[in-house]
Amino acid sequence: MTQVAWEKPESAPEEAARSGVQWKYLVGFVALFVGIGYLILQGTISGARYFITIDELLAGDYVGQTVRISGAVIGDTIQYDPQNLIIDFTIANIPNETKDLARTLYEAAHDPNAAKLAIHIRDQVKPDLLQNEAQAILTGKLGTDGIFYATEVLLKCPSRYEEAAPNQAIADPLAGK
C-alpha cells in the first residue's frame, strides 16, 4: 500500500504548506470552470426572457419573441372552454407596483385608460387562482394579431397568504364583509 508509505505524521504540516501550485489540479479545475461557464452562458442565452410591462410590449418590437409580462386580470373577460382546454382573458397594465398589491391590482383593473392585452392559452386547465384582479405573470409570444399566446401562467392573489389592511367592516356591523 503506497498510502501507508506516503502518510506523514500530523506534526509535520509545514511541508504541505510550502507545496507549490499543483498544476494538474489547476488545469483540471480551469477546464471544468470553463465548461460549466459555457453551459451557464448557453442556458442564459436560450432561456432568457425579458420581463416587461404591457405598455413596453405594445410599444416595442416584440412580436414573435418569447417574453414575460405581468398584468391585472379583468374578471369579466375570462372565457374558458373546458372541452378543449382553451382559456381567454384580458389583462390590464399595472403602472407602478406599490406596497399594497391588492389596491394596485384593483386600480389597474378598473382604469379605463390602462393598456389592455388579450391573452390566449391552450391545453391548460383553468387555474383556481385565475379570477378578477389577480396578478397574472405570463410567458409567451405576442402574435401579429395583437393577442398574447401564453405558455406559462403564474397567478398571484393579493390575499394569498396575507390579507391587506385591517378591515373596517370589523367596526361597522352594517357594512358588508
Binding site: I36, L39, I40, Q42, G43, T44, S46, G47, A48, R49, Y50, F51, I52, R68, T139, E152
Partner: peptide
C-alpha cells in the same frame, strides 16, 4: 436597465450534466 428572468428551460439545460 431591463428585467431578464430565466425560465424552466434554463434549469433543464444547465443542471442535468451537473
Amino acid at each position: 436597465g431591463t428585467n431578464i428572468t430565466l425560465g424552466k428551460d434554463y434549469f433543464l439545460q444547465v443542471t442535468p450534466p451537473l
